[in-house]
């Protein structure tokens, strides 16, 4: 589904990603872990097409096609979804108008007519139940005045509405208490389809108790320095990142 090949990326001229290789197949859940500043969010930004991330080398293939030149909306229409680490508040744009616009763009892309208002409201009701989001929130402007937890829930709600093929959850657990975390994770699991894939970006292991990864990758200084199964996450929880960092620095020194 997603194939990242030797990806190098700069932000404001500074190299952040220094050669990432990653393959995500349909149905898989990948966790990308790593200390702060290792490049996790930059990787997510590169996949969804943020213009401030400058790709200097390598490629990102999605469904066998390079998406580097694709505007973010087209990537979204093809099924890539990012749950934002910091969802923005957009006063004046109602949740309903926003989601209707998004749903109908998706339908247009697939050659379908716009959804009828009643079908749309039915869909909203159904998905709201699924992710346990408060009805009052969806009557407001996008994220306006939402608490941190509500914003994250709202991301998962949008994910439920749009049914992406590839979901990237960028620090979805940050700022959530354990109950909210459980609700959000349950939502993500309920939305899982056999052919859809998920990339969970997180600093901590706790989210992975609920969203169980098939693969865990550790990102450090712009490179994946270790990949493994879900047990790697537990090992990191126990021992922290330092041993891996040390190993990595030593291997670099050894190489010299």
């Amino acid at each position: 589904m997603l194939k990242i090949k030797n990806l190098h990326a700069n932000i404001e001229g500074k190299e952040i990603l220094k050669g990432i290789d990653l393959e995500v197949r349909p149905g898989e859940v990948h966790a990308i872990m790593g200390p702060n500043g290792s490049g996790k969010s930059t990787l997510a930004s590169a996949i969804v097409g943020r213009d401030y991330v400058e790709i200097t080398e390598g490629d990102i293939l999605y469904m066998g096609e390079s998406i580097l030149e694709m505007p973010p909306e087209e990537r979204a229409l093809k099924g890539i979804f990012l749950s934002f680490q910091y969802p923005v508040e957009i006063p004046g744009v109602s949740m309903v108008n926003f989601l209707r616009a998004a749903i109908n763009e998706q339908r247009k892309y697939r050659g379908l007519d716009p959804m009828s208002p009643s079908d749309f409201l039915k869909l909203m009701r159904e998905k709201k139940k699924l992710v346990g989001i408060d009805s009052a929130l969806t009557n407001r402007s996008v994220n306006e005045g939402f608490s941190g937890g509500e914003k994250k829930k709202n991301e998962i709600f949008q994910m439920a509405m749009l049914e992406p093929k590839l979901s990237i959850l960028d620090e979805t657990d940050s700022g959530l208490d354990i109950d909210a975390l459980r609700v959000v994770a349950q939502g993500v699991n309920a939305l899982k389809r056999p052919d859809s894939s998920t990339i969970v970006i997180t600093h901590y292991q706790r989210l992975l108790n609920y969203i169980v990864p098939d693969f865990v990758h550790v990102l450090y200084k712009g490179r994946i320095i270790r990949s493994g199964g879900k047990e790697l996450a537990l090992e990191l929880e126990e021992k922290g990142y330092d041993w891996l960092k040390e190993e990595y620095e030593n291997s670099l020194n050894g190489a010299l």
């Binding site: 969804v48 097409g49 943020r50 213009d51 505007p71 973010p72 909306e73 990537r75 979204a76 229409l77 979804f81 990012l82 934002f84 969802p87 923005v88 957009i90 006063p91 004046g92 744009v93 108008n97 926003f98 616009a101 998004a102 763009e105 998706q106 892309y109 402007s141 996008v142 949008q158 749009l162």
Partner: peptide, 27 residues
């Protein structure tokens, strides 16, 4: 940031700009 958020949900840039301008006027 708002513009990107809307686009990342599949809303084309032009429409996203319209939504934002409209929101601005809405107040």
């Amino acid at each position: 940031e708002s513009l990107f958020y809307l686009r990342s949900r599949g809303i084309p840039e032009y429409e996203a700009r319209m939504l934002l301008m409209y929101a601005f006027a809405h107040e």
